[in-house]
Write a protein that binds this DNA or RNA. Sequence first.
DNA 1: GCAAGGTC
Length: 926
Amino acid sequence: MAFRVLNVAEKNDAAREIARIMSRGGNSRREGMSRYNKIYEYEYNLFGRRCEMTMTSLSGHLMEIEFVVGYQKWHSCQPLALFTAPIEKKVSSNMDGIRKTLEKEIRRCNALIVWTDCDREGENIGYEVIEVCRRIKPRIDIYRARFSEITAPSITRACATLGRPDERTSFAVDVRQELDLRIGAAFTRFQTLRLQKRFPEVLSEQLISYGSCQFPTLGFVVQRYNEIVAFVAETFFKIKVKHSTPDGEAEFNWKRVRLFYRLACAVLHQGCLENPMATVVNQTSKPKSKWRPLPLDTVELEKLASRKLRINAKETMRIAEKLYNQGFISYPRTETNIFPSSLDLTNLIQQQTVDENWGQFSANLLTEGANPRQGRKTDNAHPPIHPTKFTATLNGQEKRLYEFIVRSFLACCSKDAQGIETTVEIDIAREKFTAKGLSITAKNYLDVYPYEKWCDKTLPIYRTGDTFMPTSIDMVEGETEPPSLLTEADLIALMEKHGIGTDATHAEHIEKIKARNYVGVQPDGKFVPGELGMGLVQGYDAMGLEMSQPHLRAELERDLKKICLGQKQKDVVLREHIEKYKEVFVQTCEQVNQLDQALAQFFGEPVQLNEDPVTSQVINSQPVFTCPSCQTQMCMKKTQDKGFMIGCMRYPECTSRAFFPSFVLDAQVTERVCSRCIPRPVYKIKFQFKRGSVPPMMDLEYCTCILCDEYLQEILSFRINASSSVTQRNTSTRRDNGRNNENNNRRGGQMSSTTQSQPRRPQRPPFQPDNHDSNKRPRPPRPENYVLCGCDQRAIIRTVRKEGVNKGREFYTCEKRECDFFLWADEGRGDDQTNQNQANDRRPNLCQCRQQAVVRTVQKAGPNQHRQFYCCSKPSGQACKFFEWLDSERPTSQPPPAQNQRPNRKPRCCGICRQPGHTRNKCPRK
DNA sequence: GCAAGGTC
């Protein structure tokens, strides 16, 4: 049986080229599941045997990381929680075709060779391929091909020296991805949500993002602007000597360049004036070259297009990609500035000989032979940017950029410009002056490269020992000048220098800070900080945080390198950086007023908010509490589906909280007293309920304590029972009546007399957050008037309200809607343990699909009506077929007594005919 | 609605 190998490259171009080299042009091609990623097939000798090779490709990263569902929405959690929120890595939806191709092809293969780019990201992308393939074939043999360029020798060498993928390098990328996501999302949400509310007139629609590359890029612009603003001009003085002759004019510059003291300069100037005769002390002539341009890589193209053509980096890349797709130029995303020896430069130059502007130059170049200047960088994949086909059909910016690429290519393949530089040094009153002249002897590349100037400068002829009387000796005054604002090319150079972003992303980061209104661009192409950008940088600077400095990113880069070298563990780096940024985040929250103040300089006074100082979370209702466990302020807010919540704003770090159910319409804190936890803070809250949600108990007052963390339902059930005159229960099933007693006494006995008659409940220890796992919400202390139901939730007591034999009877039912737990209260009345035992007895089994099985009752008329059975609790579409009768024997023909029926359970009314027993879809009237 | 990194 044939030994098949699946080969995967990072992009289709690379796959095609590697396949062509390995097959010596003899490969076949077929379509894959992704239209951009073809499948190439050929045979190759590998592992000492003839192998059937299948080569396909990706389009960069196959997977993306994202927070799990509960954290994706902006208001779903505190931004602080994003530092620890669970994340997942999965195949991006737009990469589904590629995933399917891999899954399909790996099934028929015996080994996998990863041919992704040989850099850090490439290694990580390789592991994404491995993960997808291992899901299909867990034991597949995996190799890594390492190559420095896509040429026959390099590819052959890679095949002969196949190794294993480097997990550490891939880990480094995992760390970078996770940190970028967590930090970016946390700060972006925090800044945006807060500042939109603080400055609604200006920022209500503004997204205020933070990114580890965006902010340093902004920082460069602001720093240069600040340097200019802070610049103090200094006056300087210098001496200039001129000499005019019939052969030409010479201007001599002072060797001291300039002095900042007028008197000193004046003394020396006076000396020259008193003894003005100049003596030529030295005269030299030497050859001078002006170097031709390097081959174009992406960054160089962006910088030069910005400087020479005034086309910005983003636009340059857009046009370049279009030219590439039309086949006019080579791939424009490359870090290589070395032409590979395999590239046929002569043919490329030949194509350009037909042009009316540079055709003649190209023809001459052919006769001389191409001699490209070579740089030092290679990305192992793509050659420098060069024209691949002649065209004269382009217009506008496309034409300009194409012409620039062609002229750069021809200039690079030509020769340096040559000239003779003459330097003349003279002495006047022991002060030295020099003048320089230039005589160009061969323009060479300059003939085809109009973007650079090199001019002749003719000097009169001087010989050493000559003397002459200067035409003028002047003392001139000048002022030092501030640096100029950054151009886009300057900005890209700074980003490159400090390791901010990559070649492929520089333009995107610049574009992003423009889009966010952090910076603006003047008509002359210079970058100025915008009000928002300036305010953000000033605000963070005022907090003493170096958010806009490149150091933080540089530190991460250093640690990532250590992961690659095995000097540091991935988890350690991740933990350290998360902790560091989390600390920065907390500091930002604590000092966030600095940010407000910085922006207030530009946008006016901010709108006042009720806010938490740590999280700046806006609070909708008063007042603000102090968290008893961490001293952070807590807030009460209305949640979408859970009614009201009082909770620590540092959740989940601090788990102090209390929830109130959704039938509460309004809540108002009236006091801060606790009968049980004094001197701990406790809140007494007055609730209003939706009409009908509880028996006629409107404006019920409820005292709860955050420390004790008790639930509203408990007091509700108590009050309901107390007012319904049901038989007195065992006092142990009642909640803290003693506490109410104390409260009532303090408030002058406002509570009903029923509560006052209850005996005091034993004191329970206050809530101790330190005893809880910070990742889990603490379970509330269990009050005595509920039982645990089978799904481990509380089953609370309710009263049958419907007319009939069971009216007024009480029953336990699970708080959870999905759970069908039901227990008559009088079946175990007076004995809490019995209640619990009964509940436990009725705990559902685990069904076959490991889901809970719940008890249901047969509704349908027939011999089994009212009989109970276990079945899977999943929704019908997903449920397994687990089924088990609850009773061992079949029931008699008589229906079971009424107390075995569940009151008010699932009337199954269709809502059309108002008749129970069928669903809306099956209604005969429909 | 968030990052940065691949790539088409």
